[in-house]
Design a protein around this nucleic acid. Structure first.
Length: 427
RNA sequence: GGAGGAGUACCCAAGUGGUGAAGGGGUCGCACUCGAAAUGCGAUAGGUCGGCAACGGCGCGUGGGUUCAACCCCCACCUCCUCCGCCA
């Protein structure tokens, strides 16, 4: 949510910033509603003050035995008038909120305009593996090695689901353990949130109202404000942990991480090159999350990017870090870095982590504030999130990058203590 | 799923239609004291909206309604507690 005061005072500045990610921005109507709203509130507050005053005099007059019936009917008219104005104000506020709640965040100054084509690779780590043999793709490797059962996954859950089996499940679990261990070392607090969330969570995260069709809704009757859905990312849960709270400045930054499966419809987004587990309806992810003061959020973003990158480096995977252009950032985010890992069979880098600063955008939607000790004033916190990491592209990258001529796969050093072997062979 | 009960500030808690929402605990300040305890006095509703401000509006789980006036009456919802049922 953007600050209406900021739009009111600097409409052109906000508009120009938004044009980096939107094709058209027009605040004319919004500002009219806003003006009308404030005028109505001012005049209605005066009427309410009068009503309060008269209402408090009525019992006294009655006690004195005065006839108050004229006064009562006069007040009845005033009260009806107030109610009509309240309705009008509410209607305006609904319009204003509907408008504001669909506006994306303002891109940071150093974020360039435009879409994907303007993303900028800021560093690349490692080298493309060279193979002296014909390398297999991850789907064949996983199937041949008995790590993942795609057919039975589809049999059980439908298209877009798979099953980690035996050693595959062990590797998956080892990855998650590795990530968890690293975050604990860095002093982040481990959370296991519910997987079913209410509407408010999606709203605060900035995913609703726009993307209600992209999540799996849980059947709970009709009413949309009471809807529940399967979480598409733990971010949606973690941003709401402090919903409607006022934190103390000393408690910031709050650093959390959660492991959850992520459930996404991904309707119509399949492409042949995204088969396997590159894009599925359910995948495992460890998510990092921070609540910070405004002045420390940039630094926190660096920390998150570095943490995510260190995990990929720990696994020895060739990857790169990109800074996203405005249109490629998700709506709530003002700045995003993607960490993309090399998938040899695709000849391309695929996202394994997205690290973003939402600035105060989500905090406004969720009313999450902190009290600054020097001034005693409340301010909105900044919120940041980063995957650390999603496994569904890490496992393919490991299989493909670590494969050997005989079809076996070398286990990255850091995972061996959980897997108990340093090489995965055909069972 | 069914039946009851509850939700008031940091905590406990009174208040069933009428000016400022009792009281207690805790916390903070002051006094007394060499200091502390005890005691006494004082402060403790944060927040938010409108306004340059003065000031005013809102605020007793949330949202509606009735009324000149709602913590109080009515409706819906949320959360928690107790009991019953279900429990792969």
């Amino acid at each position: 949510m953007l600050d209406i005061n900021r739009i009111r005072t600097n409409p052109e500045e906000v508009k120009n910033a938004l044009l980096k990610r939107m094709d058209e921005v027009d605040f004319t109507e919004l500002l009219e509603w806003d003006l009308k709203r404030r005028q109505l509130i001012a005049s209605n507050d005066e009427k309410k003050a009068k009503r309060n005053k008269v209402s408090s005099e009525i019992p006294r007059l009655k006690k004195e035995g005065r006839d108050v019936s004229d006064l009562l009917s006069e007040m009845k008219v005033l009260s009806d008038d107030i109610k009509a104005n309240d309705d009008a104000i509410r209607e305006l506020e609904e319009k204003i909120n509907r408008f504001l709640s669909t506006l994306p965040n303002i891109p940071a100054d150093d974020v360039v305009a435009g879409g994907k084509e303007n993303n900028k690779v800021i560093r690349t780590w490692g080298k493309k593996p060279e193979f002296s043999f014909e390398p297999k793709n991850h789907v064949d490797l996983a199937t041949d090695l008995g790590l993942v059962d795609y057919e039975r996954g589809a049999k059980i859950g439908g298209s877009g689901y798979w099953i980690y089996t035996g050693m595959g499940a062990l590797i998956e679990w080892a990855l998650l353990n590795n990530f968890i261990e690293e975050h604990l070392k860095d002093g982040y607090t481990f959370m296991l949130p519910p997987h079913i969330l209410n509407y408010k969570c999606g709203y605060t995260a900035g995913q609703f109202p726009k993307f209600t069709e992209d999540v799996f809704k849980v059947e709970t009757g009709e009413a949309s404000e009471n809807m529940q859905f399967l979480l598409p990312t733990a971010e949606t849960a973690l941003i709401n942990f402090h919903h409607n709270e006022i934190l103390k400045e000393e408690e910031l930054p709050k650093k959390y991480f959660a492991y959850t499966p992520c459930y996404r419809k991904e309707a119509g987004s399949y492409r042949t090159e995204e088969r396997g587990m590159i894009r599925g309806h359910q995948f495992n992810k460890v998510e990092m999350f921070q609540y910070t003061t405004p002045e420390t959020s940039e630094q926190a973003l660096d920390e998150l990017v570095n943490k995510a990158e260190r995990l990929v480096q720990g696994l020895g995977l060739h990857h790169r870090v990109s800074k996203l252009a405005a249109k490629d950032c998700s709506a709530s985010m003002g700045k995003t870095f993607d960490i993309e890992v090399w998938i040899p069979s695709m000849g391309d880098f695929k996202e394994v982590s997205s690290a973003s600063n939402a600035y105060d955008y989500q905090a406004r939607r969720g009313n999450i504030r902190f009290k600054r000790s020097s001034t005693g004033k409340t301010e909105f916190v900044h919120t940041l999130n980063a995957s650390g990491l999603a496994t569904s592209r890490i496992l393919p990258a490991i299989l493909e990058q670590y494969q050997q001529e005989d079809g076996s796969v070398v286990v990255p050093e850091v995972l061996r203590k959980w897997i108990g072997t340093d090489i995965i062979r055909k069972p």
